[in-house]
């Protein structure tokens, strides 16, 4: 067995062992703990609190969340960015699958996806053509301010918000990501 110390509280990981034969599973370790999950849920009373309660109780942490109606009536699509905390990263998905109100969970962390976030900001300038050139849209204007929106991948939105700071942000709201596979499955 390995002499490598395990992080405190981490599940017993046997990847450094020397099995006599090649083993069918390759135990994972050290991967990014942030998981991106697409979850289809029933619109029942308490579904959101059951999902969020489970995530808290199992020691995970929600970094971002967005919810909206899915194409199926009575069902909602949640996109979650979850930090697995000290648990094995695949526990997030497995525990969510146990909930009766969860119809389907997909871990999109390492998949080729469209991931979009939305930011709406009010900046203290009236001249925003440079921002519009980057893809922002003007929602309304006032004597000393402009309200704009911008959508993009998380990093793009982060970069856009950084740029806004130079213009003086009066107010900003930002959504969690919505994520879809690039190829139809």
């Amino acid at each position: 067995m390995s002499d490598r110390p395990l992080p405190p509280g981490s599940p017993r990981d046997h990847d450094a062992g020397a099995p006599k034969e090649p083993l069918p599973t390759s135990p994972r370790g050290g991967e990014d703990r942030l998981r991106v999950l697409s979850v289809l849920v029933e619109d029942n009373s308490g579904t959101l609190s059951k999902v969020s309660g489970l995530i808290r109780r199992r020691g995970f942490h929600v970094r971002a969340i967005s919810i909206g109606p899915s194409r199926e009536p009575g069902r909602f699509r949640m996109t979650l960015e979850v930090d697995a905390g000290h648990a094995e990263a695949d526990q997030v998905l497995k525990q969510l699958e146990r909930l009766v109100d969860v119809v389907e969970v997909e871990d999109l962390t390492d998949h080729d996806v469209h991931s979009r976030e939305l930011v709406v900001a009010r900046v203290a300038v009236s001249e925003v053509s440079a921002l519009v050139d980057k893809g922002a849209r003007v929602l309304d204007t006032g004597p000393t301010w402009t309200t704009i929106e911008f959508a993009g991948e998380g990093e793009e939105v982060g970069g856009f918000v950084d740029e806004l700071r130079r213009h003086g942000i009066l107010d900003v709201v930002r959504s969690g990501p919505v994520v879809m596979r690039r190829t139809a499955s």
């Binding site: 017993r12 099995p19 006599k20 135990p27 094995e88 695949d90 699958e97």
Partner: peptide, 22 residues
């Protein structure tokens, strides 16, 4: 142990505490 085998009806038990090889 060089091989852990875990049998359970609940898939979330796999690797929750001990990561099985089988």
């Amino acid at each position: 142990a060089t091989t852990f085998i875990h049998v359970d009806i609940d898939g979330s038990e796999m690797g929750k505490n001990v990561r099985p090889h089988i």
